[in-house]
Each structure stands twice: as C-alpha cells, then as structure tokens.
C-alpha cells in the first residue's frame, strides 16, 4: 500500500486553507484523536532532534556481559542481543524514522507535485504524456514498485528511501493534477493570465496555495506509510544495514527472540506502531478539517 491508494479518498474539490494558522490548529486539535496523534508526533520529533542529548548511552556500545537484559532501571527498555542499550537505540532510531519519512515524502512531493502542476496547468499533450507515465507507474501497486526500484538500486537505507519516495510519487501527481484542473479555469486564474502573468508565477502564486490542502493531507498520510514500507524492506533484508538502529531492522533482528527476550521485538514494534498511529490520527483529522464538505457542517 502506498500513498496512491489514498488519493482517491481525497476529493479534488478540496480547496485552499482559508483560515489563520491559530484557528487552523485549534480546529485540528479539537478532537481527542488529533490530540493523541499530536502528542505522539511531537514526542517523536523532540526525540529525534535531541537524541544525542537525552539518550542515556552510546547506541553502538557493545556490552558482552549484559546481552538481552530485560528492562530495568539501568536500561529502561532493556539491552539488545549485543548488550546495547535499547532505549538509546530507539532514540537514535527516531532520527532515522524521521529521516525516512521526510526524505521519502519530500521526494514523492517533489516529483509528484512538479508533474501534477505541469500536467494540470499546461494540459494537452504534455498532460497526456505525463499522466500516461503516472498511470503506468500507478499500475505497479505500491510496494511492488518500491521493491522493483530496490532490486535495481541495491539494498541500503538511502536506496530504500529513494525507492519508497519514487514509489509514492504517482499518487501526488494525480492528486495535484486533479486539483489544478479544477482551479485552472476559475475566474481568478483566468484574470491573472489575461493580465500577463507568467505560467511559473501563476503556478506559484495562485495554483500552488490552492492545492496545498490536499497535498498536506496526503503528505501527512504518506509519512507513516513510508515508515512502514521501510520497515518491510528491512524485513526482506533490503533496508537499513547493521548496526544502524532503524526500527524496522531492530524489529526484524529481534524476531527470533519473541519467546526468550520479547522486548527485543516488541519495543521496536511498538515504537513503529505508535509513531505510525500518531501520524495517521493527525492525517485523518487534517483531512476532516481541510475537507470543505465536512467543514461546512
């Protein structure tokens, strides 16, 4: 599953954010779900930024004598199979998780928004060409496209991020194009065009802000999918390489300890789960807030 499956749920009729930032945040965090999600995401970001300051130990330091220790006051999350502090590894892993999500989504956004804007704005054969290309990429369902890209690029965290990002761009392209199409013929844009504004200017000043809302929603929902896809790649041995404390890799490395040292698999599992849940809760509420049909009520 990638972002592409989500696009269809976003109406191209969704339009721009038309209220101030404070009002927006108040609306967004009105629900319990969003509050929970927000707290989770905030915690993740803080951990990622301050990992070197707050991590109690060096996440790479091996301790031969204390491998697989269960959680204790000294090691709140226990130690891993090489005696490394799990809490510190999870904290450093948070940085990688944020990296994976940000880079993959940024890549998908960059490619997708460009293609979508150009296709939607210019129309005609450019539109046909770009959209046929997007459609073909969309024909490779989600994870398969990512896998194929990794097969070509080879395993590794960087390649995994590229693959996940490229795998997710078609969803953005289609969404943006749809939104642009619905805005292109509005009086406002027509007026600008008549006044002689360059296409780039029109795109930047008029169209992009108007398609921002659905893009934000999709990006928020694509972030957790990128994290899950990266973890899935780790499961297949195609993701992050040791000793990188990427959560998916930690989870996969811990799988044989489900019975003997369950914290080795359950702590990274929970870390991924909670993070992804947090983003999903926020993303879903963003959609509710930004979707004018629902907001009207």
């Amino acid at each position: 599953m990638t972002a592409s499956t989500l696009t269809t749920s976003l109406s191209p009729r969704s339009t721009a954010i038309r209220f101030g930032p404070l009002d927006f945040l108040r609306r967004l965090f009105r629900t319990t779900q969003a509050q929970i999600g927000g707290a989770i995401v905030l915690l993740l970001l803080l951990t990622a930024v301050f990992a070197p300051l707050v991590a109690p130990y060096d996440p790479y330091e091996l301790r031969v004598g204390s491998a697989k220790d269960p959680p204790s006051p000294a090691y709140p999350f226990g130690t891993d199979d090489l005696g490394r502090d799990m809490l510190s590894r999870i904290m450093y892993g948070a940085r990688i998780t944020v990296q994976i999500g940000t880079i993959s989504v940024a890549l998908a956004l960059g490619i997708g928004v460009t293609i979508g804007l150009v296709a939607g704005f210019y129309g005609g054969w450019i539109d046909s060409l770009l959209m046929r290309f997007t459609d073909i990429m969309l024909a490779f369902p989600g994870f398969l496209l990512t896998l194929a890209i990794v097969a070509v690029l080879g395993p590794g965290l960087t390649n995994a991020m590229i693959a996940v990002g490229v795998g997710a761009f078609p969803g953005f392209a289609r969404l943006v194009r749809g939104s642009v199409l619905s805005i292109r013929e509005t009086e406002y844009v027509t007026a600008e065009r008549v006044l002689g504004a360059t296409p780039t200017r029109i795109m930047r000043s008029s169209i992009l802000p108007n398609v921002l809302a659905p893009i934000i929603v999709l990006a928020t929902l694509a972030f957790p999918l990128a994290v899950l896809d990266a973890a899935a790649l780790s499961f297949l041995g195609l993701g992050a390489q040791p000793p990188t404390p990427e959560w998916g890799a930690l989870l996969v490395d811990g799988r044989n300890y489900l019975r003997t040292a369950p914290h080795l698999v359950n702590i990274p599992g929970l870390a991924i789960f909670i993070t992804v849940l947090g983003f999903n809760l926020i993303g879903n509420n963003l959609r509710d807030v930004l979707d004018p049909r629902l907001r009207a009520r």
Partner: peptide, 10 residues
C-alpha cells in the same frame, strides 16, 4: 554473520 561483523567493527 551480520552480528559478528558488528562485533568485529567495534
């Protein structure tokens, strides 16, 4: 094997 090379790396 992957764990062993981690130990050797250290």
């Amino acid at each position: 094997r992957e764990k062993a090379v981690e130990i050797m790396q250290a």
